[in-house]
Amino acid sequence: MMDVLTSFTFLIVAIGTMVLAFTGGLAGTISVMKGQSLIGDAIGHATFPGVVLSFMLIGIRETFTLALGAIILGIIAFFSIQMITKHSKVTLDGALALILSSFFGLGMALMSFVQGNPDYGGTQGLNDYIFGQAAYMLSSDVYLIIIASAISLLLFIIFYHQIRIYIFDPVFSRTIGINENFMNLLILTITILVIATGLKAVGAVLIVNILIAPAVIGQLWSNRFPVVLLIGGFSGATAAFTGTYISTAGENIATGPAIILSLSAILVLSIFLSPKGILRRGAHKGKLGEDQYD
């Protein structure tokens, strides 16, 4: 066991995924509470053509440039969703499914073009961005995750109060001079930084889990926003550590899916055991009934 814990690869991957999942827990809380958790899923899928496109244009398979392409396509996807839901009767549900699948389709079409074209060498790694290949993470990948997460967290801290008020009461936040477009852009930036840098670790298809599950776990354990955030962040990091350990120790277990199953395990436990959970709910209700007003 000590072999695994001290191996360089393990440390690199564990640090990277833990930072990522911690930030994901915080960033995801915003969209989960706004009832827009699946936007992350659509953006996650939509990053795939961005990765392939930037490979085609720049010609190297280097994490930073690929992440840049991912961010650009993610932003286009986000605004397409906004435009469709705002200017037609199509619901968010429909718009998400449409954007998610058509952008991913574009990615596949581009991918088949790249693979069939001898001008592009070294396309092998591109597929890793669909499911993630944490085992191949380099220290440069981890630096990128750390820098992106630091920016995300910094933005979160600077605009903490605005974010809180905006989620709770958007109309009130406008009347006290908080700009709605600015807030949407801010939330998008915080989220997309996590998604774009997390692709190599977790992959485009599953990345949304580290945005939703920690947030839900946090909400199950606390009624206070800062505590929800911290519980979310730490359960994300714990799952990242566990998942990375399992995948390093076991054979043929991909890291991304292992992290997500660890997170799911924490979530299932929380659904039953947390103060609001199924097992303790009866007791909780009784308590509420007792000190009712009047």
Binding site: G35, I167, F168, D169, P170, V171, F225, V228
Partner: peptide, 14 residues
């Protein structure tokens, strides 16, 4: 400004 009821996000932990 005190808005009409139901314009806020009741699930928010506050």
């Amino acid at each position: 400004y005190v808005p009409q009821k139901g314009e806020v996000n009741w699930d928010f932990p506050a």
